[in-house]
């Protein structure tokens, strides 16, 4: 009998990945619940269904590495080890939030964990991620920068500027396109000249064409580790296209009705990364008790963090006037 469990990934890392993905799923579900209770205002873009991508990178990256994500970035922030109350608190506009309510859902930032920001203007952060990668090269250190973005980003100019610059300067960076098949409300194939919005553009920048099943956590982890190692060894950038699907609409305002029922059903029932990974762990003969204990642990963590967030005070009004400038204030004349 083949020892499936002790392959290149192994039990320990698989359980780590399981715990990570579960955390991302349950926090997003909690965020959704809190919206329904009107405890979270504004907008939110949930990554339900896309957890394997952020989760795999979360496991593969080291302390000191830099990550950049989009407004759909709760999961990517948590994946670097940011606290659940830091994320939920920010969504709820509380003092315990990562930015104490100054940024909100679309701008989660946690520099201590390497979360260099969540960016709400499509494409901008690819160019900025090049900057942290450039700094690593300039300082001759070996951090890796990772930049997550959606399929829609591949049609904006900044995407192309950033890929070209990363390649010509051989930057230690991994670009990760989460292709969830829809550019907001529009099927990506209807508005893109090529079949694979990111991968089919890779050749234009002398990069390998990499397409991965973004809902297969093991494959995602292998792909992430390979690209990160390449960057860390000074062998330059990678562009990964990970196929995935969001379980909910684009944002809070969107019920996602433009997607065919059969398609949604197929992804929810047959291609859910969490459901499939649980089955895989059982198939690998990991004790169900261990799997369930992790589930209970994460549920407990999410509940406790929710309580902390709800008990946390709202920001003081004077905070409006702080931190425009490095002197801490907002004065612009003497």
């Amino acid at each position: 009998m083949v020892d499936k469990l002790n392959d290149d990934i192994g039990e320990e890392k698989r359980l780590q990945l399981w715990e990570m993905m579960l955390k991302l799923r349950l926090v997003e579900k909690k965020a959704y619940d809190l919206f329904l209770q009107n405890l979270i205002k504004g907008t939110s873009h949930l990554a339900l269904g896309q957890e394997a991508i952020a989760g795999a990178f979360g496991v593969a990256l080291k302390q000191g590495d830099y990550t950049f994500c989009t407004y759909r970035g709760h999961a990517h922030t948590l994946a670097r080890g940011s606290s659940i109350e830091g994320v939920l608190g920010e969504l709820m506009g509380r003092q315990c939030g990562l930015m104490k309510g100054k940024g909100g859902s679309m701008h989660l930032t946690d520099v201590d964990k390497g979360v260099m920001g969540s960016y709400a203007i499509i494409g901008a952060h690819l160019t900025i991620a090049n900057g942290t990668a450039l700094a690593s090269k300039y300082n001759k250190t070996n951090e890796v920068s990772v930049c997550f973005f959606g399929d829609g980003t591949t049609n904006i100019g900044a995407f192309h500027e950033a890929l070209n610059m990363a390649k010509i300067w051989n930057l230690p960076i991994v670009f990760v396109c989460e292709n969830n098949l829809y550019m907001e409300y529009t099927p990506i194939h209807e508005v893109t000249a090529v079949e694979h919005p990111a991968a089919d553009r890779a050749g234009a920048y002398d990069l390998d064409k990499i397409i991965v099943d973004g809902n297969d956590a093991d494959e995602m982890l292998r792909t992430a580790e390979k690209a990160i190692a390449k960057a860390r060894e000074g062998k330059g950038p990678s562009l990964i296209e990970a196929k995935t699907y969001r379980h909910s609409g684009h944002s809070r305002a969107d019920p996602g009705k433009y997607r065919p029922d059969e398609e949604v059903k197929d992804w929810m029932e047959n291609k859910d990364p969490i459901k499939n990974y649980r089955a895989k762990l059982l198939d690998f003969n990991i004790n169900e008790k261990i799997i369930s204990e992790i589930e209970e642990k994460i549920k407990d963590q999410v509940e406790k963090a929710t309580e902390i967030s709800m008990a946390s005070p709202i920001p003081e009004i004077k905070e409006i006037y702080t931190d425009v400038w490095a002197n801490g204030g907002s004065e612009w004349h003497n």
Binding site: H125, I128, N130, G131, A133, L134, A135
Partner: peptide
């Protein structure tokens, strides 16, 4: 964009 983005990230 890439120039200023790189400068900002650095």
């Amino acid at each position: 964009q890439a120039i200023l983005g790189a400068a900002m990230g650095a």
